[in-house]
Amino acid sequence: MEERQPADVSNGQGDATRERILDAADALIRRRGVHGVTVAELARRSTLSRPTIYRNWSDADDVVRSALLRRVSRILDAFPVPARSRPQLVDDVLRFTTMFRADAVYARLLDDEPEAFTRYTLQRVGSSQRLILGWLEAAISAAQQDDSVRRGTPRDMAVMLLLIAQSAVLSHGTVADLIDEDAWQHELRAAIDGLLRP
C-alpha cells in the first residue's frame, strides 16, 4: 500500500496556523512520543479547533509525517549548495547524521521509540526520504563531474547511501557499548567513502 504523502512543508514555510499545529506535534513527540500525538492533543496544545486540523491533514498520523518532514527540511537547509567532490560529500553526510541524531524530535524517537522511527522512516520511502534522496542525488551527480565519485546512476547510489546512513543511525544506540563515538564516525566515514570511491 502506498504511503499517504503529508501536506507539503518541504520549504520550511507555511501559514501561521499550520506552523502552530506542527510546533504542537513537535512538542508532543518530545514529551510523549508519537503515540501521544492525537488530534485532540494537537488542538489543545495549538489552541486551535479540531476542524482546523482536519482542514490541513486527514489524521494525527499525517501531522506527524509533516512534522518529521519539516524537521528534515530544516536540517537540509544547512546544506544550501551540493557538495562538488567526494570528500565534501562524505563530510556533508557525516554532518547530516550528526545533526539528525542531535535533533530533539528524532533523538526522542531513536532513544525511546525505535519502532516508531522504523515505521515513519524505514518501512517505506516517504517524503522525508525523498527529500534526502534528492539532496544526495544532486551532490553525487555534482561530485561525479570532478571524477572523485565513481560512475553510476546517481539515484541508485543515493538510495544505497541513504540505506547505509539510516542503518548506522538506527543501530547506533545498539552498538554504543561495542564502539565509541569516534570509532563509529570513522567507520561510517570509511563505508560512505568506499561506496563512492572510483
Rank of each mutant, 00 (worst) to 15 (best):
S66F: 00
G36P: 04
Q129V: 12
S167H: 03
R44G: 04
D111F: 00
T153L: 07
S66T: 02
D112C: 10
R4D: 09
N11C: 11
H172Q: 14
R151K: 06
V159Q: 13
A104R: 01
A176T: 14
T98M: 09
E2N: 05
A7I: 13
P87H: 10
D112I: 05
L68V: 12
D61R: 09
L76A: 05
I140H: 00
Q5Y: 03
Q5F: 04
G14C: 09
V159C: 08
R124W: 10
N11E: 14
V81P: 07
L94V: 11
V105F: 03
Q185I: 15
W184H: 15
L163V: 07
G134L: 01
R32M: 00
P80Q: 12
A104S: 11
V105R: 00
L42V: 13
R130N: 15
S141H: 06
W135F: 09
G194D: 14
Q166S: 04
I53E: 07
E113T: 04
R71T: 12
D193S: 06
E2D: 07
Q185P: 01
L68R: 03
I29T: 02
E181H: 12
L109Q: 06
P114M: 08
G33M: 01
A183N: 06
R119Q: 14
E187A: 02
G194P: 14
R65P: 06
Q13Y: 08
V105Y: 01
G12F: 10
A27H: 03
R101C: 03
V149M: 04
A168S: 15
D92G: 09
A138N: 10
M157I: 14
